[in-house]
Amino acid sequence: MADSSVETLKTAVQALYRVHAVEGPPGENGLRTVWHLCPDGAELLSLVDSDGRVQRQELTLLEDHYIWASGQGVRTGSLERSGGGNRAAPAVVVKADPQLVPQRLLRAAMAMGTYTGQDRYILHMQRVLALAREGLEMAEGVTLFHGAQRPSEPTLPAVPPAEAPAPAPVQLAFGKPLPDEVPPPVVRKSEGLVMLAVLALGVLVGLGMLVLILLG
């Protein structure tokens, strides 16, 4: 089995973007193939629609294999070679991983991250692997966060809300009014009788003076 360390994958990526891509005619599904192939164990196959949008890509870096399809994300796998004892070239079979292998994905993302060229198909695969790596790191962070157990916190008993106290009645200190309060006038019965007598006396005096004036 070939060495699949990050450094050897970087070497394969550097060889990949030095080759000239071969474009094929559109197939029955309307997609055309763009094929990057180098003799150092790197291969990139892209399927592109009539508008130039990439719909599917398959990347091979030595013994590691990666498949991306629009709307499906990235899947990892490996290459298995058979018929090594025959003179004919051994058959190569892609064996898909039952589930995404994080280490395999991280190796490819790091290796493709060294590409600084302008080939739009290699850049697309570079971006796909970078996004998949970010999603994987976020998912692992969430898993670790939920896996950690926090110390249990005591639960306080529920306290019913306190009722608002009724307003206390205002009491006058020693029967005196409050500073802002004006007491109503107090009228006593004896004072009322005196006022009536004074009024009657005044009327009588007035009548007497009026008689004197008329007689005089």
Rank of each mutant, 00 (worst) to 15 (best):
M110N: 15
P26E: 13
R75C: 01
Q72A: 11
G84N: 12
P185H: 06
A197H: 04
S82K: 05
M138Q: 12
I67F: 10
M110L: 15
A139D: 15
A168R: 08
Q55G: 07
D49H: 00
Y121T: 07
V205A: 13
W68L: 01
A111T: 08
R150T: 02
G113P: 07
Q103T: 04
L16C: 06
M1D: 03
I67H: 14
V101I: 02
P98V: 09
Q99W: 03
G113S: 07
A2V: 07
Q126V: 06
A158D: 14
D97R: 02
P183H: 05
M110C: 03
P102M: 02
E7C: 01
L215Q: 12
L123R: 01
P183F: 09
V182F: 15
G192C: 07
E80H: 12
T155C: 03
L131G: 00
L44G: 00
E58T: 06
L16S: 00
M112L: 09
G192T: 03
L193R: 08
V19P: 07
L156D: 15
V159F: 13
C38F: 01
P25K: 06
V19C: 10
V194M: 10
E43I: 02
L131N: 07
V205D: 08
A200E: 10
E181G: 08
R87E: 12
Q72M: 11
L61F: 11
L123N: 09
Y115M: 07
R87G: 04
V74T: 00
L62T: 00
Y121Q: 08
V92P: 00
Q99T: 08
Q171M: 13
H20K: 12
L207M: 11
D3N: 05
S152K: 14
G85E: 14
L44R: 01
L9Y: 02
M112F: 11
L172H: 15
A200V: 10
R53N: 11
L193P: 01
I122D: 13
R150V: 12
T76R: 00
Y115Q: 02
A139H: 13
R18W: 15
R150W: 12
L136T: 05
G192S: 15
S78R: 01
L201E: 13
P26Y: 04
R18S: 09
M138K: 11
W68T: 04
V142Q: 08
P184C: 09
L193S: 14
L105N: 00
E7D: 14
P179H: 07
V6P: 11
Q103F: 05
H65W: 13
N86D: 15
R133T: 07
L156C: 09
L131A: 09
H146A: 13
L129P: 00
A42T: 04
G85M: 10
A197Q: 07
P151E: 12
Q126T: 13
R56N: 06
R127M: 11
M195N: 14
V34G: 14
V6C: 04
V74L: 03
L105P: 06
S82N: 11
E28G: 12
A164S: 11
V101K: 01
A173K: 09
